[in-house]
């Protein structure tokens, strides 16, 4: 019996070490990692205006990679619009980066959902600069200091996200 327990403990330790190593690949130093400086970008938004991350220096930025064909992404948009309205005056800025291949459905969605924050069509280079966007949705929170404060892969826990936004907005 003792031997079995020992084997289980060894397996558990091996799994823990493997997981730790796996997660460390997203640690400091890797593009798009939490605590690293948010990669700069300049794009054109859907209205043809310049959209540059540098323009939002000193603000808390919620950068959302999404697409019209992504059901979980679509479900998040109304909440993001609400965040922009609620926390915009305190310094929150939302930016949507669409990963659609075609801009037409993005324009339609933008108007239909009355999105009130800038949206641009993304590209592979931008996605790679943020560590790769290989599945949607992916959301980054960037602090007032320009560093990535949090990364959410998959459908976001809105309560946790809201708490993080509030905490970042309080930091001056």
């Amino acid at each position: 019996m003792r031997r079995i327990v020992l084997v289980i403990v060894v397996i558990a330790i091996a799994i823990a070490v493997y997981e730790a190593a796996r997660h460390s690949s997203h640690a400091k130093g890797h593009p798009g990692a939490v605590d690293s400086p948010a990669p700069q970008f300049s794009l054109q938004d859907l209205d043809g205006k310049a959209l540059s991350l540098a323009n939002y220096q000193g603000k808390v930025v919620l950068l959302n990679f999404w697409a019209t064909w992504c059901t979980p992404c679509r479900g998040e948009i109304p909440q993001f619009i609400e965040f922009q309205n609620t926390y915009g005056p305190q310094g929150l800025q939302l930016i949507g980066i669409s990963m659609d291949d075609d801009a037409k459905p993005v324009h339609e969605f933008y108007q239909q959902f009355k999105m009130d924050y800038p949206v641009a069509i993304g590209n592979a280079n931008l996605a790679e600069s943020y560590g790769g966007v290989l599945g949607l949705p992916v959301t980054f929170l960037i602090g007032r200091d320009g560093r990535i404060a949090a990364k959410y892969v998959g459908a976001t826990d809105m309560t946790a996200l809201q708490q993080k936004i509030q905490s970042l907005l309080q930091a001056r």
Partner: peptide, 9 residues
Amino acid sequence: GPSILYMQA
């Protein structure tokens, strides 16, 4: 899938 994802990896 979408090309923008394929192009990355």
